[in-house]
């Protein structure tokens, strides 16, 4: 089961986990907007740092670092592409400012990954489905989402059983080149798909038997309510947006390379 362990959702409780998912989502969008507005390095680093306390309050450092590590490859790719394009664009010269703006692009990407992973690491699918339902989205959508999450562990177990059964009949999964290996997985995929279709029929039957579609106005056992912490987060988010817009309009943001050169000049 080890391969599929990452797909399982776990229930953890922390002040960040207990926040209203809708408010958390607004916060993520706000961070997104701020990161897009600034092309300079300095404010992006600040954006990165101000999010760190949330990670530690939620106690998800380990998983969070893992998701950043997963993004490292793409980040490196963004950096190299940026450096190369400016290099060829400026007649094969490379300045400190160019490198810095390439670094800023990379940091922007990391800030986005940081906030999104924070959101998904601290929001249970249960909560997310509830947020879907209570933000006037069609219920079918929320239902499809929660049911998909619900059946991930079930399907994972089934895939494992089918793999074992096919291996017992002599199927060798780890043999041959990449194309051959992909083809090896066909005898696993087909039974998995067939059984998923059969399962969906049974599910539909059970749903019908439990009055699915009886009324247009469906109610919900749980109600999402805003607490004190939610109001604090939303005020912080609004404050962040105000500061961002103010700085963008009235403050000249220095480049870090400029700061460094002026510092060295000052020292001499």
């Amino acid at each position: 089961m080890s391969v599929f362990d990452g797909l399982k959702f776990r229930k953890i409780s922390s002040p960040i986990h207990n926040l209203d998912p809708r408010i958390k989502f607004i916060y993520v969008i706000a961070i997104f907007i701020c990161a897009i507005l600034f092309p300079q390095m300095l404010p992006l680093i600040i954006l990165f740092i101000i999010q760190l306390p949330f990670v530690f309050i939620a106690k998800v450092q380990k998983q969070w670092i893992r998701s950043l590590r997963g993004a490292a490859f793409l980040a490196a790719f963004i950096f190299i592409i940026n450096v190369l394009t400016t290099f060829f664009y400026n007649n094969y010269t490379l300045t400190f400012t160019n490198v810095e703006s390439a670094l800023a692009m990379t940091t922007r990407f990391i800030v986005l990954v940081e906030s999104f992973s924070l959101f998904f690491l601290t929001t249970s699918p249960d909560h997310l489905g509830l947020a879907f339902e209570q933000s006037h989205m069609p219920y079918e959508f929320a239902f499809a989402f929660t049911t998909a999450v619900r059946f991930v562990p079930v399907m994972a177990e089934e895939a494992q059983t089918i793999m074992d059964a096919q291996k017992a009949r002599g199927l060798e999964l780890e043999k041959g080149n990449i194309l051959k290996r992909i083809r090896n997985y066909i005898p696993i995929l087909i039974p998995l798909i067939v059984s998923a279709i059969r399962r969906s029929m049974e599910l539909a039957e059970a749903m019908e038997s439990r009055a699915w579609g009886a009324t247009k106005k469906r109610t919900n056992l749980y109600l999402l309510k805003l607490h004190k912490a939610d109001y604090i987060l939303i005020s912080l988010t609004i404050l962040l947006l105000i500061i961002t817009i103010y700085t963008k309009l009235y403050v000249q943001i220095p480049q870090i390379s400029e700061l460094l050169t002026s510092l060295t000049l000052f020292a001499t």
Binding site: F9, S124, P125, D126, G129, F143, T146, T147, V149, R150, R199, E202, L203, A206, M207, R210, A211, W212, G213, A214, T215, K217, R218, T219, N220, L221, Y222
Partner: peptide, 20 residues
């Protein structure tokens, strides 16, 4: 194949939610 929700209690409520 007859349980859809992410918690036992929400599953028991499923039919009642449908009835509004």
């Amino acid at each position: 194949n007859q349980l859809f929700a992410l918690s036992v209690e929400k599953d028991v409520a499923f039919g009642l939610e449908n009835l509004g």
